[in-house]
Every structure is written in structure tokens, then in C-alpha cells.
């Protein structure tokens, strides 16, 4: 690709918009997953008794629920990310490419 095309894309305000939106979403989602996971690991290391507590009268503990919750949270966030990136952001991306070529 020619240097000029890259130059034109960088100058396009939509490119800035794309980068800002995608970067914000990436780091936000990554922070949420990492926060949840390392929060969980901290509980395992420093407050294991919390995870031993049963949910109600049964055998299922908070540990099991929170652990499973991390998996579900990861699923939900990956789905949200892909949906937004593959529709809204890709549309924007295609507009940028069309305008700059």
C-alpha cells in the first residue's frame, strides 16, 4: 500500500473515531475480565473462607458460583465484543477504506 493512502487514512477523523472506540472497548473489557479473575484469585489466596460459604442451605458454595461466573462473564464479553466489532466498527472501518482509496 502506498504511503499516501496510509497518510490519508490517518488524517480521516473517522479513523480516530474507530481507534478510540475500539481501544476503549478492548481495554475496558480486558480490565473487567482481569479484574474479576484476579479478584477471584485474591479471594482464594487471602480470604478462602468467603468462597467456602454455602449459597443457601445446600452444598453449592460461593466459590463454585463465582468461578462459574467468571466463565460466563468471559463468554458474554467476548460475544459483545465480536458483535460490536463485526458490525458497527467494521462498518466504520469499511467507510474509512472506501473514502481513502
Amino acid at each position: 500500500m502506498s504511503k499516501l493512502t496510509y497518510e490519508r487514512i490517518r488524517a480521516n477523523p473517522k479513523f480516530k473515531e474507530l481507534v478510540t472506540k475500539r481501544t476503549r472497548m478492548s481495554w475496558l473489557f480486558a480490565a473487567v475480565v482481569l479484574g474479576a479473575y484476579y479478584g477471584f484469585v485474591s479471594l482464594v489466596a487471602f480470604a478462602p473462607q468467603v468462597l467456602h460459604m454455602p449459597l443457601s442451605s445446600g452444598r453449592t458454595t460461593w466459590g463454585v458460583v463465582l468461578g462459574f461466573g467468571i466463565v460466563v462473564l468471559s463468554w458474554v464479553l467476548t460475544a459483545l465484543y465480536v458483535r460490536r466489532a463485526n458490525t458497527q466498527l467494521d462498518t466504520l472501518n469499511n467507510e474509512i477504506l472506501r473514502e481513502s482509496l
Binding site: S26, F29, A30, V33, Y37, S74, L77, T78, Y81, V82
Partner: peptide, 8 residues
């Protein structure tokens, strides 16, 4: 948990 991070 590495997988969602790789995607993001």
C-alpha cells in the same frame, strides 16, 4: 481466562 484477553 487467557482467551477473552487474546480476543480483546
Amino acid at each position: 481466562v487467557g482467551w477473552p484477553i487474546i480476543l480483546f
